[in-house]
Computed example of a mutant assay.
Amino acid sequence: MYKPGSDRHPLVDGLFYPSQEEELKQALSLDPALEQSSAIIVPHGGYTHVLKHLQEAFSHVVDQKPELIILIGPTHREPEDHIFYPDYVNFESPLGLVPVASELTSQLKKPFTRDKMNHMEEFSLEILLPFVREYFPDKPVLPLLMGKDSMKLVKEGKKQLQQKLPEKTLYIISSNLSPHDRQTEEWALNNSAWITKGDYQSLMEISRKSKKQPCGLGPLLFVKELLPSGHWKTCTNMTCSTGDSKRGLEVWYQSFWFDYT
């Protein structure tokens, strides 16, 4: 019988977020929002750029008592027709271990694929682990990386996973409003509006025509298939990082919470 491997060690601690416990706990401080949800969209990047978005989004879920937490984000690699789950027992964070739902992953089949390299190299889920460890200690997580923005992949994944999830599942989607590219503000504004309107068709059209889709469109589409009726509401205003100003590259961030009413 297959047994998963060891623990995943942090890759970007001390670079994207504080590696020291005291400083990190200060960054995680937040007040619970009045409106609580079981699904949020958060951006990925260094805390210098995305911390406010993370704090506001997590404030909408901290009062939840989930049985399982799904962390789902993109891979920053070449597209592949797989949804990757980790070959790890735990994900390490500066605040302690975050256990992987190994009993659930052992039941997954194609398009889900056991993987170590993608999860080892990917930061989009790692930056969420301190919040998960702080506010949901010892709760199992199902970390997933979408290899492609594909509805076929989404439908196949939903068909297999839907019946395996507990009723109290918390969904945390890692997605930026835009890719790291030139002149993306207009696209980011459109993407934000389409997310709140639930216009996933327009998001897919952008993906096919211009490649200005959210960096995390696949995860958005996947969770949309798993959630009941409702709509996304913004937690924060859009912000921009221009980390490569010489080439005119920028990326846009925003966070959302899911309103079931």
Results as ranks from 00 to 15, higher is better:
197 K>M: 12
152 K>N: 11
243 G>E: 00
152 K>A: 11
186 E>D: 10
256 F>Y: 14
236 T>S: 15
228 P>M: 15
144 L>D: 05
172 I>Q: 03
196 T>Q: 15
145 L>F: 00
145 L>Y: 06
226 L>E: 04
139 K>Y: 08
242 T>Y: 10
202 S>Y: 02
195 I>D: 00
140 P>G: 07
161 L>M: 05
243 G>D: 00
233 K>F: 09
224 K>Q: 12
253 Y>L: 05
217 L>M: 08
184 T>Y: 01
231 H>M: 06
139 K>G: 04
202 S>G: 08
150 S>T: 14
182 R>G: 06
218 G>L: 04
210 S>C: 05
156 E>T: 01
199 D>A: 15
213 Q>H: 13
175 S>W: 00
153 L>G: 03
150 S>E: 02
174 S>V: 09
162 Q>D: 11
160 Q>C: 05
194 W>D: 03
141 V>W: 05
238 M>H: 10
223 V>S: 01
219 P>Y: 02
243 G>H: 00
238 M>V: 14
174 S>Y: 06
191 N>M: 03
233 K>T: 05
145 L>T: 02
168 K>A: 10
182 R>I: 10
221 L>G: 01
205 E>G: 09
179 P>K: 05
231 H>F: 02
203 L>P: 01
184 T>H: 00
215 C>Q: 02
214 P>H: 11
227 L>N: 09
191 N>P: 02
156 E>Y: 07
198 G>F: 13
143 P>Y: 02
224 K>H: 05
160 Q>W: 01
237 N>Y: 08
245 S>K: 15
162 Q>P: 04
225 E>R: 04
220 L>N: 03
190 N>D: 09
257 W>F: 12
231 H>I: 03
168 K>E: 14
254 Q>D: 03
216 G>T: 01
236 T>Q: 08
248 G>V: 14
198 G>K: 11
184 T>S: 03
173 I>F: 01
142 L>K: 04
231 H>G: 07
200 Y>W: 14
237 N>L: 10
230 G>R: 08
223 V>N: 06
237 N>I: 07
239 T>D: 08
166 P>R: 08
217 L>S: 06
193 A>W: 10
153 L>W: 03
185 E>S: 12
171 Y>H: 11
178 S>T: 04
199 D>R: 11
207 S>I: 03
256 F>A: 06
234 T>Q: 13
230 G>A: 11
146 M>F: 04
205 E>K: 15
209 K>E: 13
213 Q>R: 12
205 E>F: 04
189 L>R: 15
147 G>K: 07
215 C>S: 10
150 S>V: 11
192 S>L: 09
159 K>E: 14
226 L>P: 05
227 L>H: 08
235 C>A: 13
161 L>F: 00
214 P>W: 07
